[in-house]
């Protein structure tokens, strides 16, 4: 069964090309252009992994992470944060309790590696 990945980013073009990339890698990729839409999809589709942009107008990446982590049925979903704000991404990820983040622009290989690592960890958790 294909792993389902939700990508939330207000950059429409990046969202589009990354969805192509994820699908190319064989994932069931979903996309949302803002936080509320993204959170709605999370609740409805329960993705296996969320990749979200830190900076978004209105509800930003941090707000979405907080909502997800507050919901007991969703809080186990692994999240990867991406951001163009190279200076603050580390601090922000740490504050949100996220272990993995990437800065824009990132290499596709790095992203794939991180996704695979997340799934491996999830599987390990499920098995134990």
């Amino acid at each position: 069964m294909k792993r389902r990945i939700l990508l939330i980013d207000d950059e429409t073009f990046l969202l589009k090309v990354l969805l192509v990339r994820l699908k190319h890698w064989g994932f069931d990729a979903l996309g949302a252009e803002n936080g509320p839409d993204g959170f709605l999809i999370i609740r409805q589709n329960k993705p296996d992994l969320i990749i979200l942009d830190k900076e978004m107008p209105g509800m930003n990446g941090e707000d979405v992470v907080r909502l997800v982590r507050r919901d007991p049925s969703l809080k186990q979903i692994p999240i990867i944060m991406i951001s163009a704000d190279v200076e603050n991404i580390e601090a922000c990820a740490k504050a949100c309790g996220i272990a993995h983040y990437l800065t824009k622009p990132c290499e596709p290989e790095d992203l794939l590696e991180m996704i695979q690592m997340q799934f491996a960890q999830s599987e390990h958790r499920e098995n134990t």
């Binding site: 950059e11 090309v17 192509v20 190319h24 190279v86 800065t103 824009k104 622009p105 990132c106 596709p108």
Partner: peptide, 14 residues
């Protein structure tokens, strides 16, 4: 600059 650069990079890579 980073965001469009990321998009260009990803698109051309694809």
């Amino acid at each position: 600059l980073r965001s469009p650069l990321a998009t260009i990079k990803e698109a051309t890579s694809l």
